[in-house]
Amino acid sequence: MHHAVSPRKRTEAIQGYLFISPWLFGFFALTLIPTLVSLYLSFTDYDLLSAPVWTGLDNFKKMFTDDPRYWKSVWATFYYAVAAVPLRLFMALLVALALNTKRHGMAFYRALTYAPSIIGDSVAVAVMWRQLFGGDGLINGLLALVGLPSKTAWLGDPRFAIWTLILLAAWQFGSSMLIFLAGLKQIPEELYESASIDGASGPRRFFSITLPMLTPVILFNLVMQTINGLIVFTPALIITSGKPLDTTNFYALYLYRRAFESFQMGYGSGMAWVLLAAASALTLVIFKTSSRWVFYASDRGGEG
């Protein structure tokens, strides 16, 4: 069955590899090799200017036992993800439901609500957010206008600073919203029709048809946004620069500071690998639990 590869086949193979070679180069040079190098660096003390020095598990030991700011950054990131991810998904679903109608000009509204997500991760939005919540920013101006206390230092107060970032995340619901919208469009119309005939109310239809049919999409969005939540960086760098009292010193920001501001590339690499492990573990947990709550139309569950 196994013959020598014909010259034509070989030419085809070479051509194929040539065609994907830009991607292959990118994958090896920019992804695989650096990833492996960073794994090596995580066991070293490396300041970029002199050769890395092998230190075994020292970086990890220090991280877990001798760096109070590390655990603060873990807590801040966890807090942020737990608050921001559900809030964003909730907003996304709400807006997707509102936009899932066949009214005139709906395309315009869809584009409008998606806009914050396109520009959302940019420095410009972060700067704008800073202006909004600054000491004499728009929010305090509006509060003063309606006679409410308007002297709150939103960005400087350890109680509120992280919530300004969570709010920003909730506002950037666009990409999840689009995916929800696509999910909603795939729910067969007949289900709703037969439910109407049976006299099901609006909420009933939502909880018995829409939500179950949407669970695969919810799973996808949940995984994607959880990962996004764990690697949040730009808003914390620009809006709060990790302050006050490290309440917004998120994991990726702290990693960056260690690696590129204090030039502890080994420590930074170590932190990156712990993050990768934690994100993978969390994703695994979400997938494991998904069999209990995700409904696939194709499989006929026990209730059939």
Binding site: L30, P34, V37, S38, Y46, L255, Y256, F260, L275
Partner: peptide
């Protein structure tokens, strides 16, 4: 993710 990438790029340059 972008920062993790940056870190990797730096590692690459070093390597």
């Amino acid at each position: 993710m972008r920062r993790v990438l940056l870190l990797m790029v730096a590692a690459l340059i070093a390597a």
